[in-house]
Computed example of a mutant assay.
Amino acid sequence: MPTSTPAAVRTRVRIPLRFADGYSVTAEVVTFHGLVDGAEHIALVLGGRTGGTPLVRLHSECLTGDVFGSARCDCGPQLREAVARIDGAGGVLLYLRQEGRGIGLYNKLDAYALQDAGLDTYQANTALGLPEDARDYTPAVQMLAALGVAELDLLTNNPDKARQLRELGITVAETVPTGVHATPDNLRYLHAKAAHTHHTIALSDLAHVAG
């Protein structure tokens, strides 16, 4: 996805956030003009960072996990973890409108039906004629540039995020793994991410859930 003109900050507003477990925090929510894909991505600026390298997470929207608490993925717990860790360290959470690794909500639910028939999360996408992962992080880089972030510590288990950011000119000083949020319902999903796309998820951490 080619970058055209730089993005610019559109609005900044402080919003008190409260999660289902009672955790609360106030974030500065930032919107943007000029994002290359035209989507309504937002940034949550968290913590009182006065210096040092910011901690950043690129979090792809997951309606089922983030809003409804679906246990088929680990997205909701990762979002909750990321907000707390970034607030403690100081940094930014980019909330990217990339449902279903970029294939959209309806296609993701179609893929779930294929997973129920035995395919893994990546096989289901390709069976629908869709990319395994359609996400392009060019808009994320535009957002970071508009916020003045050129170097960061990246909170992720996904090596593709660090690779794309580096290729797009961001300095990733350190990759910081998230926790492993395993449930009986997402074990196949987590195993597929570790085995197929080399997410930094220790399969040994999943054994106690499987047992």
Rank of each mutant, 00 (worst) to 15 (best):
V29R: 14
I15R: 12
G104N: 13
R135T: 03
D21S: 04
V56L: 13
L168R: 12
A127R: 15
T138V: 13
D153M: 05
A150I: 02
T11L: 11
M1D: 09
L168C: 02
N125T: 10
G76I: 01
L63R: 09
R57A: 04
A43L: 04
F32T: 11
L109E: 12
L58Y: 04
F68I: 08
G38T: 13
G22V: 05
D87T: 03
T138C: 04
A145Q: 12
R80T: 08
R101H: 12
A127F: 10
I103F: 08
P16F: 07
L119A: 05
L190I: 01
G52E: 10
L206T: 04
A140C: 05
T50R: 15
L55V: 08
L35Y: 05
A134T: 11
E61G: 00
G38N: 12
Q142V: 03
V29L: 14
D136K: 05
L168K: 10
F32Q: 06
A192L: 12
E40Q: 12
R101L: 06
L190Y: 02
A210Y: 03
Y23A: 13
V30N: 11
L155M: 12
A27G: 10
R163P: 01
T5W: 01
I201Q: 12
L105Q: 09
V149R: 06
S60E: 05
A117P: 01
R10Y: 00
A113L: 14
L44Q: 05
T156C: 08
V36I: 13
A145K: 15
H198A: 15
S60T: 11
P159V: 07
H196T: 15
T3H: 11
E167D: 15
P6A: 14
R97G: 04
L203N: 05
T197Q: 14
L147Y: 11
A117V: 02
G48L: 00
T178K: 04
D160P: 00
A117S: 13
I42T: 13
A140F: 02
Y23Q: 07
Y106H: 10
T171S: 10
R14C: 12
R72H: 08
N125K: 09
N157A: 11
T3I: 15
H59A: 08
R80W: 00
Y106Q: 14
T197Y: 12
A20M: 04
L144P: 02
T5P: 00
R12C: 14
A27M: 06
V209D: 05
H208M: 01
L79F: 00
Y189A: 06
K161M: 01
G104F: 06
P54R: 03
D87Q: 03
R85C: 03
G148L: 05
L44D: 01
G91F: 04
V83K: 02
I103D: 12
